[in-house]
Amino acid sequence: MSAPATPVLDVRAVTKVYGQGETAVRALRGVSLTVERGDYVAIMGASGSGKSTLMNILGCLDAPTAGRYLLDGTDVGGLDEHRLAIVRNRKLGFVFQSFNLIPRMSALANVELPLSYGGVPAAERRRRALAALDAVGLAERAGHEPNELSGGQQQRVAVARALVTSPSLLLADEPTGNLDSTSTADVLGILAGLNTRGRTVVVITHEDEVAGRAKRVIRLADGQITEDLRRAPVAGPPRFGAAR
């Protein structure tokens, strides 16, 4: 009998405390969860619930005060900054609310950036970046700079950039927060389509519409998980619109 597959995320009794003594703030209070390969999880919570702190830990942008976090089987708590940067580059794809694209660089050049940091040769970078842009329906806009793209198109470029390294996890922080309803539907359709093709997706959100596309919803309150619910996601095919 084969061994069970290693979870993409394995969070074990993680706490996070800011400050000391009477002014200490306990942002996370013993959070434990696993996310299996190919899952699509939404993490929800009101302001102050701990979801942003949890996202920073999942993204290897912050370290827990106590507990363990294993990313694709690697205990990130034992890594130095150099090795941690390599893990972030190879195993994580980030999508942020504010897109975080570099102005005066083309969509193609923005998508190539993680590969540049990883030392991938130029020809291979271009091939993989074009494939990632094609996956989000923007291959024809490869030469356009961010200010020549709509908000929805910019976020799709950001998704392509997150995908280009073939990461173990796509981690999206409020990915539709700056988008109109049509562009929101486009981006959510892309994330759902990527998950259908096997990509592991974790979305941090406070929006029911965004969480409704996930297969599993985890709710946080006061630094603790209050609900972990698996359900059938709301259907919705990817929609690509060149004019958006």
Rank of each mutant, 00 (worst) to 15 (best):
R88W: 02
L115H: 04
V157D: 00
R230C: 09
T200K: 13
P4R: 06
P4S: 07
A142P: 03
T182N: 15
G152M: 09
P4V: 03
M55L: 15
Y117R: 12
G38W: 10
Y69W: 01
V120R: 07
Q20A: 15
R12T: 15
I43G: 03
A242D: 11
T200W: 05
D173E: 08
D62P: 03
L163M: 08
V201N: 06
R244Y: 11
I86F: 08
M1A: 13
G119R: 04
A192P: 00
D180M: 14
L115N: 11
L33F: 00
R230A: 13
V202S: 02
G73I: 06
V95E: 04
A129G: 08
L149G: 01
R68C: 14
A185V: 14
T6K: 09
L61G: 12
G137K: 00
V41K: 03
L108R: 09
G241E: 13
F240D: 02
Y40S: 05
A132D: 10
A5E: 11
L149C: 08
A192S: 12
N56S: 14
G77I: 09
A160V: 03
D39T: 09
Q97E: 02
T23P: 10
S106K: 05
M105D: 08
L28S: 10
S116H: 11
A172M: 02
D208S: 14
R244W: 07
K16R: 15
L191F: 15
K16D: 11
R90T: 14
L84V: 06
T165V: 08
E145R: 14
V14L: 10
D10H: 12
M105Q: 11
